[in-house]
Design a protein around this nucleic acid. Structure first.
Length: 333
DNA sequence: GGCTTACCTTTCGG
DNA sequence: ACCGAAAGGTAAG
């Protein structure tokens, strides 16, 4: 068993509250652009040299630099419990350590990416050919609820439109975090907020199309199954069980369920087979049937192929191929 | 089990 | 500028 080590160091850039914190790691462990802009999360935008986005009900500004990343985090003040506020006054560094931990979890920095890249390069020529250009692409560990509703929005849809839909969900039903640089940022909504009357109508009026019903129904189903308790139970399930549980939700089929398993439940071998992956798979599998649609059987077969090729973290490897495939068609930057 | 069709709307490309 | 097609699919028959 190989143990992986990464070096983390944190220090303040200045002593006042408006400080940048640093998270250091080996080169090529994380590329912000490929990771945040690769179609996993729809809530990040690049402004000048920094990435701005929301997760865990906080606003994060993150910059890549030579030996890691620098970041600032903003929380809404009014919901901090008194005890926590006192704690902040006593020791501002404790929140810094919490922030660092949250960020490490979000980027899953305990996963040694470079070692895996080396293995995937050996295992597969196509991976090897894109690995240099698409280094440092990680799976994020996202909030489960955001992940579920984001990918319900993703069906038959463009990334640009998905992003605007997720933003609308946050604006309509999420709690305000803060304003920064002329924009107001909102947390992703709770299940209670999404399970109100009138959600379907409002979303339909705002261009969600048939997904409005999926979202309203799914919110209802999750609430009836116990809301956050259901989420906790889901997080404890093994991959197959979690996948079939997710597929009981409206608008969640095999592909979306696998996205959620991979991107927020840490099931590293889940392979979401979409049109891109299907096209990629055609290059690998010689006797691939000429069907236009992906049947259940074919879906399974394609996933198994990549799992055999890349091993237990095949989902991570496949995401790198997906990013490479995405960028091929948008080489405008 | 596999195949077809409808589904909403926006964005993209010719 | 206009218009058809595609867009990280799913559900129903």
């Amino acid at each position: 068993m190989i143990r992986y080590y990464l070096k983390y160091r944190c220090f303040k850039m200045s002593s006042n509250s408006d400080k940048w914190l640093r998270l250091c790691f080996e080169p090529k462990e994380l590329q912000l652009k490929g990771t945040l802009n690769g179609g996993q999360s729809f809530r990040w935008k690049q402004i000048d040299s920094e990435w701005i986005g929301v997760f865990n009900s906080k606003l994060w500004r993150i910059k890549q630099y030579e030996h890691g990343i620098e970041f600032k985090v903003y929380t809404s003040n009014d919901d901090e419990p008194l005890v926590k506020k006192q704690k902040i006054i006593e020791s501002s560094c404790s929140t810094d350590i919490e922030s660092i931990k949250e960020l490490r979890d979000y980027f899953q920095l305990d996963f040694n990416l470079r070692e895996h890249y080396t293995q995937w390069c050996k295992a597969d020529e196509l991976f090897n050919s894109v690995a240099n250009d698409f280094y440092g692409i990680r799976m994020l560990k996202q909030e489960v609820l955001e992940n579920i509703f984001s990918f319900i929005c993703s069906s038959n849809n463009h990334i640009s439109r998905i992003s605007s839909m997720v933003e609308k969900l946050a604006i309509f039903y999420g709690k305000e975090i803060c304003s920064y640089n002329g924009s107001t940022y909102y947390a992703f909504p709770t299940i209670e907020a999404l399970n109100q009357d009138g959600v379907e109508t409002k979303l339909r009026d705002n261009g969600f199309g048939y997904r409005a019903k999926y979202i309203a129904n799914t919110a209802k189903i999750i609430a009836e199954k116990g809301g956050n308790k259901w989420i906790t139970a889901l997080q404890a399930m093994p991959y197959k069980e979690a996948k079939s549980e997710l597929m009981t939700l409206t608008g969640v089929g095999a592909k979306v369920a696998d996205c959620i398993c991979l991107m927020s439940l840490a099931h590293t071998s889940a392979i979401p087979v979409d049109t891109h992956v299907y096209q990629i798979a055609r290059h690998y599998i010689s006797d691939m049937p000429k069907q236009k649609t992906v049947t259940d059987k074919l879906y399974q077969r394609i996933g198994d192929h990549f799992r055999k090729l890349y091993g237990p973290s095949a989902g991570w490897a496949q995401t790198v191929l997906f990013c490479a495939d995405l960028k091929k068609f948008q080489a405008r930057d």
